[in-house]
């Protein structure tokens, strides 16, 4: 039997892994929201597309590089690149013409893009569950009493940490990162200052989508299956995470993601798994009542 301490440890590990998924996806939401004030509905579906790209690339590589970590990492890189390009193209053809239109039109377009991605993938895969058969032992790892922290979990945590640190570096130290932060403050002025706003928005979509794709491939490895509908609930929860952390704030999205993962793991332990979605959205509503700007968000002064 598990002792209470072991249950807490186990749920902390589970929560951290779940939190990694949320954090990686919610970064895309928060970056896009910060820069164009768009609730990018299609983002959860990019995560789903990323999972499928990973699945297909992995399948193609299996004969050459085997079914171990090498293929998984290659599939992840391929999914990052392809989804990044996909995100860029969506931005270029669906969102850019509407950047100055009413916000609602942009939101509806995002719902439309989400429908396109979901249904295209459904047709492509006949709406079936696809199983991701890698040869990494899902049980092997370091044992602490009855709790095992598997290698897979540790690698996923490691990849997420590397990505989060690089993103923080990118946004705070590079010239593009600086331009992103500037655009999120005041887009028209950035244009006047000679910043190529469209390019930076494109880069933002590329990075956000690439991160979601990593989460998608990680989900393949961790859960072992992919489905065309997997992006919907994941996307919504990642958005919840972004709001908890303070929408528009990059550290906020990371913190919100990890926190939501931990809270959800704890809540599932206490209330049972059928209530876990209620739990996540309940936290969201409580958050909005007591601290609507999120944990790390700034109070926004709406300009006239």
């Amino acid at each position: 039997m598990f002792s209470p301490g072991e249950i807490i440890l186990q749920q902390t590990v589970n929560g951290l892994i779940l939190g990694c998924f949320y954090a990686l996806i919610s970064l895309g939401y928060t970056m896009v929201y910060g820069i164009v004030r768009l609730l990018n509905f299609a983002h959860g579906d990019i995560y789903m597309v990323g999972a499928f790209v990973g699945f297909f690339v992995f399948g193609a590589l299996a004969a050459i590089t085997g079914t171990g970590w090498l293929s998984i990492i290659l599939a992840m890189v391929a999914a990052m690149f392809l989804c990044g390009v996909l995100g860029f193209l969506i931005q270029r053809f669906a969102y850019r013409p509407l950047l100055d239109a009413p916000r609602l039109s942009l939101l509806i377009t995002a719902i439309g893009v989400s429908l396109i991605l979901q249904n295209a993938m459904m047709i492509l895969t006949n709406g079936e569950f696809k199983f991701f058969n890698h040869s990494v032992n899902p049980r092997a790892g370091i044992s602490l009493g009855n709790v095992t922290i598997t290698w897979i979990q540790m690698v996923l945590l490691g990849i997420t940490a590397v990505l989060l640190i690089s993103l923080t570096w990118f946004v705070s130290k590079t010239i593009w990162g600086k331009a992103m932060r500037a655009i999120s403050m005041d887009r028209p002025t950035c244009r006047l200052m000679g910043i190529n706003v469209n390019t930076i928005i494109g880069i933002t979509f590329f990075i956000g989508s690439a991160l979601a794709a990593v989460a998608g491939v990680m989900a393949c490895v961790y859960y072992g299956n992919v489905h065309y509908f997997m992006g919907y609930i994941m996307g919504m929860k990642a958005f919840t995470a972004a709001v908890i952390g303070g929408i528009g704030s990059i550290p906020g999205a990371m913190l919100g993601g990890l926190l939501l993962g931990l809270l959800e793991a704890g809540g599932t332990q206490v209330l049972g798994s059928s209530w876990k979605d209620v739990f996540a959205f309940g936290i969201l509503i409580i958050m909005l009542i007591f601290k609507p700007t999120g944990l790390l968000g700034k109070t926004e002064v709406e300009r006239m």
Partner: peptide, 8 residues
Amino acid sequence: LFFGIALV
């Protein structure tokens, strides 16, 4: 799928 395209 067509519906989504039409919407956009």
